[in-house]
Amino acid sequence: MRKKVIFKGVALPYLLLLPQLIITGIFFFWPAGQAIYGSFLREDAFGLSREFVGFENFADILADPNYLNAVSNTVIFSSAVAFSALGVALFLAVQADKAIRGADFYKTMLIWPYAIAPAIAAVLWLFLFHPQIGLFGRFLNGIGIPWDYKLNGGQAMLMVIIAAAWKQVSYNFIFFLAGLQSIPRSVLEAAAIDGARPARRFWTVIFPLLAPTSFFLLVVNLVYAFFDTFGTIHALTRGGPGQSTTTLIYKVYVDGVENLNFGASAAQSVILMALVIALTAIQFRFIERKVHY
């Protein structure tokens, strides 16, 4: 789509674009290029010289059990976060759509967690599940379930999943509710006249109509779980205990900032970039389809 009426001139549009192009160039393309370049180099132990090593960094990463561990952590963490955040949000949105009276009140009460930073959300759950000071943490220990997410990897994973999903529900809720409210009443009425009971109506009419929204949200939630949850993990577990909550993005940080392994970190960045580009491409295909549809 484009305008048929436009202004003439060449210098002015470039002038208008300049700020964005400069910032994009310096802070996006240069670093991205650096990452790709760096992923083929290796620094010596003193950081004095770099040599070209081809795909060795990538090969090393993919052979590194720690990296493979991070991959499997990411898969578990991301799918758990995405599906629980989507499921709860859809469930609540359906209820809010049903309860016509007070729907706005529930909406207000459910959307504000969107404003809470992932790291803050993590701390709020820390207050609840801390083994010594947290209500639930103490309760679990009290009834004989040894609870300490700082020692138990599985419990740590559970904690970061809950904290990350909790915050994302409101975002999904907003979209699901908007999606539900955009389904034409006449379609639902037609289904009711066809004799479909509410539950059946949901699965045969509403759910398929929400499919585009759900798919879009799935991609957004995965991107969120991959990248935005750095704060959650950093504030709650620092990737531990051991490396049980180290995800890919956390590992990039650890290798680059704490271990100062430039080549490995750059190679990981490149892999992540490829991942995001793939996800964005999928989403873009989907947007295109939605436009035609």
Binding site: L17, Q20, L21, T24, I26, F27, F28, F29, W30, P31, A32, Q34, A35, G38, V223, F227, D228, F230, I249, V252, Y253, G256, V257, F262, S265, A266, S269, L272, M273, V276, I277, T280
Partner: peptide
């Protein structure tokens, strides 16, 4: 220009954090 801007949609700061830090 449009695509130069559009493609940055795909590169959240977290992904390119270390090289950006160097810059």
């Amino acid at each position: 220009c449009f695509w130069l801007i559009f493609i940055t949609l795909m590169l959240p700061v977290e992904v390119r954090i270390i090289p950006t830090f160097e810059v």
